[in-house]
């Protein structure tokens, strides 16, 4: 049991996530440098070319994941979209994180059992996916369609693009990143070269309902368990 591992992130998901992360950060930094007029016009112009170039990679990465790995993508959406009583119960004590990390005795001590994603992750990741999609759509519309969008639409799209990206980036850096570091096994699985697996013990602690309902054993000892979807 101690050596059993479960596959959490297949290669396709790792590739999507990591390309998305790197391109996102480049887009966020270049975008903000331009928007807040931190550099002179020539540099800003170059940065915008760069922003658009990286945006192509960013867009293809998302489309590639959603289309080529449609099954994994829809599995992920399913996992994110199914909200049962336990999911809602998570918000009673925010998964016990305030108590454990900050010493704030918030809500009951017992954490409601969670699936592959806990409620906080569901919320955050749905928001991220929505923002990725929204930034792609508004970004390309701003690029190609500005004069025909109409002024009001243009202003909405622009503000969505700028402020949406800033809020989402703040969430990624301020919440997603530190929490990923705390769940160090997930972190290692995501960034290690090779298999994206985590110890079964760890999975049972964080995601008991996932282990119970969704996982099948593919072989004994030292082989990762595979999700059966």
């Amino acid at each position: 049991m101690a050596n059993e591992r479960v596959l959490k992130f297949p290669m396709s998901e790792k590739m999507f996530h990591n390309i998305n992360m790197v391109t996102w950060m480049i887009l966020a930094v270049t975008g903000m440098m331009i928007y807040f007029k931190t550099v002179d016009a020539t540099t800003a112009s170059l940065l915008m070319d760069f922003h658009i170039g990286i945006a192509i990679v960013f867009t293809l990465n998302f489309i590639g994941f959603a289309v080529i790995n449609a099954d994994r993508f829809f599995l992920m959406l399913r996992n994110l979209l199914i909200w049962d009583a336990d999911t809602f119960a998570w918000f009673k004590n925010f998964g016990g994180y305030p108590r454990r990390l900050l010493g704030i005795p918030f809500g009951p001590e017992e954490v409601a059992p969670q699936g592959r994603f806990n409620a906080g992750q569901k919320f955050t990741y749905l928001f991220f996916i929505f923002m990725i999609f929204g930034l792609i759509v508004t970004g390309w519309l701003l690029y190609f369609m500005a004069p025909v969008l109409g002024k009001t639409t243009m202003v909405y799209f622009f503000n969505f693009h700028v402020w949406g990206s800033i809020i989402a980036t703040a969430m990624a850096v301020g919440a997603h990143l530190p929490l990923a570091l705390i769940n160090i096994e997930d972190f290692k699985a995501m960034f290690r070269f090779g298999a994206g697996d985590v110890p079964l013990e760890d999975a049972m602690h964080h995601a008991p309902k996932w282990v119970e309902n969704d996982l099948v054993k593919v072989s004994t000892l030292e082989q990762p368990l595979k999700a059966h979807h």
Binding site: I34, K37, A41, A44, S45, M48, Y143
Partner: peptide, 13 residues
């Protein structure tokens, strides 16, 4: 602009 009088690239004033 009828005369291409406006200068500047995307994102820049």
């Amino acid at each position: 602009c009828p005369t291409e009088a406006i200068k500047g690239t995307l994102g820049v004033a």
